[in-house]
Design a protein around this nucleic acid. Structure first.
Lengths: 104, 104
DNA sequence: GCAATAGATAAGTCGATTCTTATATATTAC
DNA sequence: GTAATATATAAGAATCGACTTATCTATTGC
């Protein structure tokens, strides 16, 4: 759940792919496996990494596990990145647009 | 220089520490080594990782190498993060404040 | 109860990462 | 030219990370 844990978790393409899927809504482990050429334990291990980085949370539902993004999980990255705002001025416009959209 | 390269580069505390120092201004390799209990080659290797992730750039100055943050380097992280904006609403106020500051 | 299903855990393999020491290259100072 | 300084590169050791197969646990359907 430290910055290091989070960046390590995000450093793997499979895990970023899983997060992307979860950003569309809850999924169980089997659903998250779809399209990935990887064993079931591998998926389970990736989910464990995301979980202990605080990026996802889970809920048991019968014999399934429903995974979802943990809203606060990326906060440390946002905060970390904010310290370097002086170095990405050309991204500011994009962010402003974003925030304007969110206001509506 | 891919998302994966960048997140991997950021996943190491020593490298994040180096970036933080560089955010205060240019440094050469020897200066970046200060306070780190690590051999000179180790520093050099970390700098190579940051460089090939596109996060820093360097300029030769005599027998020294001056390192600095590459302004665009973090752009892929900003963009990636923006896709998850829906999941960090409580950070928006902070960002708004930030942008307001920058406008002044 | 028993078979099937969903998922986690254990143990091992293999390549990648992060160090080390030794050495090479370029620049500066004298 | 020679010694000292700044840095990079090479090679190797130790640890870590991402997989695998085998197995375990919990739940469901019949």
């Amino acid at each position: 759940m430290t910055e290091t844990d989070i960046f390590k978790a995000l450093a793997d393409p499979t895990r970023r792919h899983m997060l992307e899927r979860l950003s569309a809504g809850e999924r169980n482990a089997t659903e998250l496996r779809e399209g990935l050429a990887m064993s079931q334990p591998a998926i389970s291990q990736h989910l464990a990494v995301l979980r202990s980085a605080g990026l996802i949370e889970e809920e048991k539902s019968g014999r399934q596990m429903r995974y979802r993004i943990r809203p606060d999980g990326l906060a440390p990255v946002v905060d970390w990145l904010a310290r370097y705002r002086a170095f990405w001025p050309e991204r500011v416009d994009r962010l402003k647009t974003l925030l304007r959209e969110m206001d509506q």
